[in-house]
Design a protein around this nucleic acid. Structure first.
Length: 869
DNA sequence: GCCTCGGAAGTC
DNA sequence: CTGGGACTTCCGAGGC
């Protein structure tokens, strides 16, 4: 039976077959467009790497290849191919190894050779060599088809599971994979296809555990099969709960595993409890925690369990762990990170997502007294992570990133920026004419002088009316393209030539595009035009009211943006395979030079630059200062405001046209009716009047999680008044707030401060270790974290810990952890003087620009009025 | 009580 | 195994 269709690669691995002729089969776990899951067993790819004679080219030398081909792990050494290296064109012999795992040993044995292309995972090798992205069209012989597989592909009734298992093993597979379909195919059966949204299946789960014994009390799981959900409850003995969860995972076969805080709580707890229940042999834990997408057999004991290397991401073979906590943290950057807080932030009006009346610090008692309420609470916390991923479009975003970086979805989701870039750069290196040898990633810690970064312009304290903001479009990528910056174009000797692009200060040189276009500039150019194309198609989709297509294209253009912006970081790092310290340094050097040149030109032409940071310029707009900065309701003032706005827009557009040149596009970003800073870099506010009307706040406490709500609100209100030209009212308003604060007349929840706290679990001692800090107990948030832990509440390294300052008159200050959202605790009493002082300091920094300092704010309204009388 | 310094976190 | 630097703020410690 044959089957053929479109699918999306979730992740991949390989199986070695140690027959007389060694073979290797690539396993690709996919989700088909039809909805079922597929494992492709791909035949025909052999592991290889390249060797060359070290140093400068030596075309005459006759190296000892016989000793290489004589090695037991070597299958074949091919005829040499000329490849470009930084030393010039050299012969490269391709060495075929018996198995991918032998390459590591061979690298060591062949240390008298220059070895390239030797640290690329076998699955990646397949995608690179066949030029595949995650979305493929594939087909082949059906070895197994389960319930959810398409009817036409199903086995004859007389084909038993046992027969299928035998057929899979004969085809190099591991056995009966817990998927809907297993297919055997060859390299030529795989083909790249257009991006489509794959109907992924997600599994969300949540455990409730005993605080006294760590035992799992109950669990809930929800399966989301392309939007339709089913609920599953688990109670009984701990073994029954874990077996139930595992059975569900294997039966429903999800691509994504989610939950809130699963990376640091639920998954480690599952692992720990499976070890407690089944100390040995390890394979007996398979029914408890065998979540990998591999057969439930003894031979898979290495791959079937979720794993993580020290402090790294979890790996579940064939699936993608995706913690909703991490997604929410990265995209929303919430002030606090409890599930309750994030839900409140996303759905302020949804009563069904409100806190249930369960005290998490008394879980054992709650479970004993009213298990049905605890189960309801557990189920709600299982749905919410799916709701969060839906709202943040996390899965669609990862799929789009996979599509533009041409990697499996797992790598787009849980891999690093250097892996995404590898996928594109190596592909191009292999296909260039001549091909470019692919050096290995630099090993070990490389100490290097820091490279200088972007330029930040001094900013004066006070309000500046009518300012236009211009930005360089993709500044670093543009500089890399226009100057042909790449390790393959860097001039490494003293040669100088008219045609070279030479950096303004250090004179780092790159050969011209006509001589050779660098790999990186070529890729960036392609990505840039790809993004323009996606954006163009997106607007077509919008006009034809194709919402699904518009959404997909929006995800794709955004993914290209993310990918382009990752290039600079990787090339400025010390470990990357295609990097050189001069590369990163010369990029920023050009950037500083370009922007400083524009600033001085503007200053000299009578258009003062108010502020600038890396790729943005704030320019004083030549409109009458008599125009109001606040939008009037009507009348003559409105006309004056509108005309000032029009003139500013005109000015912004003209500057953009004037300073845009080949390879450096300056875009008119926004027009501000007023700009304010108290005189510190990276801290400013602006009243945006074009292209939309809003207030723009950067850097100030308003945007910081270690601020507190009352300060944030007050400061925002203050900025409103200041931008309206009403600084005095802002001082009066602030004084009133501070008075109320001192009179302990403020809602304590508005005073929660939160900071992230590190720490690691000491397995030996069985307690949390905060020794990363030089003086752990001197830090208020570490003490708050310890309080949480002692109350039996979850702690995750790196999580934001909320607290209230209760007494700052002692040193170190006394604090109390904020547990109101998770327990029945009453809010603690705050230290009014501490909060008053902190408000005054932060707000006083701002009012000082108008002559009122922090002490003035602390003086209060009532005293002030007494003096006035 | 005031000042400086270093550690740490946060933001752009 | 691994993206970057610039800059500000808060806190505790320690000197005077």
């Amino acid at each position: 039976m044959e089957w053929q269709g479109r699918m999306c690669i979730v992740s991949g691995s390989y199986q070695s077959i140690d027959s007389t002729v060694p073979k290797t089969v690539v396993e690709l776990w996919c989700r088909a467009e039809d909805g079922h899951s597929v494992v492709l067993l791909v035949h025909g790819l052999r592991p290889y790497f390249d060797i060359a004679i070290p140093g400068a080219p030596s075309p005459e030398q006759d190296p000892d290849l016989d000793s290489v081909s004589g090695m037991s792990e070597v299958v074949e050494v091919s005829e040499p191919v000329m490849k470009w290296t930084r030393h010039g064109m050299k012969r490269h012999w391709r060495v075929y190894a018996n198995q991918p795992y032998s390459v590591r040993n061979l690298r060591k044995k062949l240390d008298n050779w220059e070895i390239t292309s030797a640290d690329i995972l076998f699955v990646n090798r397949l995608m690179l060599d066949l030029d595949l992205g995650p979305h493929i069209s594939a087909g082949g012989r059906v070895l197994w088809a389960g319930q959810r597989a398409p009817e036409i592909s199903k086995n004859d009734d007389n084909t038993s599971k046992l027969d299928s298992e035998k057929a899979i093993i004969a085809a190099g597979g591991a056995g009966l994979y817990p998927v809907d379909m297993v297919i055997s195919c060859n390299l030529e059966d795989l083909e790249k296809t257009d991006t489509f949204p794959a109907p992924f299946v997600s599994f969300s789960f949540d455990l409730e555990t005993s605080i006294s014994t760590n035992r799992i009390l109950c669990a809930a799981a929800v399966i989301d099969r392309n939007g339709s959900r089913s609920e599953h409850e688990f109670t009984g003995s701990e073994r029954e709960i874990m077996e139930g969860l595992t059975k569900l995972v294997r039966e429903e076969d999800p691509d994504f595993i989610t939950g809130y805080n699963i990376d640091n709580f639920d998954l480690p707890r599952m692992q720990e409890r499976s070890e407690v229940i089944c100390p040995r042999p390890k394979i007996d834990r398979l029914p408890l925690f065998g979540w990998g997408r591999v057969p439930a057999s003894d031979s898979e004991s290495k791959r079937v369990f979720p794993q993580r290397q020290q402090n790294r991401v979890w790996r579940i073979v064939g699936r993608v762990p995706m913690d909703a906590w991490w997604q929410a943290r990265q995209t929303l950057r919430p002030q606090r990170e409890t599930l309750r807080y994030v839900s409140q932030l996303l759905w302020p009006d949804d009563q069904s997502k409100r806190k249930l009346d369960v005290d998490a610090s008394r879980m054992d008692e709650e479970w004993a007294e009213r298990p049905e309420v605890v189960m309801e609470y557990c189920m709600m916390d299982t749905h919410l992570p799916l709701d969060i991923l839906d709202r943040l479009k996390s899965i669609a975003r990862k799929e789009a990133l996979a599509s533009v970086s041409l990697t499996p979805v797992e790598m787009a989701s849980n891999g690093t920026t250097s892996q995404w870039i590898d996928s594109l750069v190596i592909r191009l290196a292999d296909r260039s004419d001549p091909p470019v040898a692919v050096p290995m990633t630099n090993q070990g810690p490389r100490k290097r002088d820091q490279i200088a970064g972007g330029y930040v312009h001094e900013v004066e304290a006070g309000v500046e009316p009518w300012v236009v903001v211009l930005d360089f479009k993709s500044m670093y990528p543009s500089i890399m393209i226009s100057n042909n910056i790449c390790s393959t174009t860097l001039v490494r000797d003293d040669t100088r030539d008219e045609s070279f692009a030479s950096s303004p200060v250090t004179e780092t040189r790159y050969v011209s595009k006509s001589e050779r276009v660098g790999l990186v500039p070529q890729l960036l150019q392609d990505l840039m035009s790809k993004r323009d194309q996606y954006k163009h198609e997106m607007s077509s989709a919008r006009s034809s009211e194709d919402a699904a297509e518009e959404f997909l294209l929006d995800q794709l253009q955004y993914a290209v943006k993310i990918l382009m912006n990752s290039f600079y970081g990787v090339f400025a790092s010390s470990f990357y395979r295609f990097t050189h310290p001069d590369l990163g340094a010369s990029i920023t050097e050009w950037a500083r030079h370009n922007i400083k040149a524009i600033i001085s030109e503007l200053d000299n032409s009578g258009h003062p630059v108010v502020y600038s940071d890396t790729d943005s310029i704030f320019v004083k707009s030549p409109v009458g200062t008599q125009a109001p900065t606040r939008k009037p309701d009507g009348g003559e003032d409105l006309e004056s405001w509108s005309s000032a706005r029009e003139k500013a827009i005109e000015f912004g557009n003209s500057l953009a046209g004037q300073f845009t040149k080949e390879g450096a596009e300056l875009e008119f970003e926004t027009a501000l009716s007023a700009f304010f800073s108290h005189g510190a870099k990276k801290r400013y506010v602006g009243r945006v009047v074009w292209p939309r009307e809003e207030m723009l706040i950067r850097g100030y406490e308003v945007r910081r999680t270690d601020s507190f709500q009352l300060l944030t609100e007050t400061m925002t209100e203050m900025f409103e008044l200041i931008l309206n030209g009403d600084a005095w009212s802002s001082v009066e308003m602030t004084k009133t707030v501070i008075d109320n604060l001192r009179a302990t007349d403020v809602d304590v929840s508005k005073l929660v401060i939160s900071r992230s706290c590190k720490g690691k679990w000491d397995k030996r001692k069985g307690e949390w270790d905060f020794s990363v800090y030089k003086n752990e107990n001197g830090l208020p948030y570490v003490r708050a974290a310890k309080e949480r832990i002692s109350r039996g509440l979850q702690f995750t390294p790196g999580m934001k810990v909320g607290y209230i300052v209760t007494d700052a008159s002692v040193s170190p200050m006394e604090v109390s952890a904020w547990l109101v959202e998770e327990t029945d605790d009453k809010p603690p009493n705050y230290d009014p003087e501490y909060y008053a002082k902190r408000m005054a300091t932060a707000l006083g920094r701002i009012t000082e620009a108008f002559g009122w300092d922090a002490d003035e704010l602390l003086r209060g309204t009532r005293q002030k009025s007494i003096f006035e009388f």
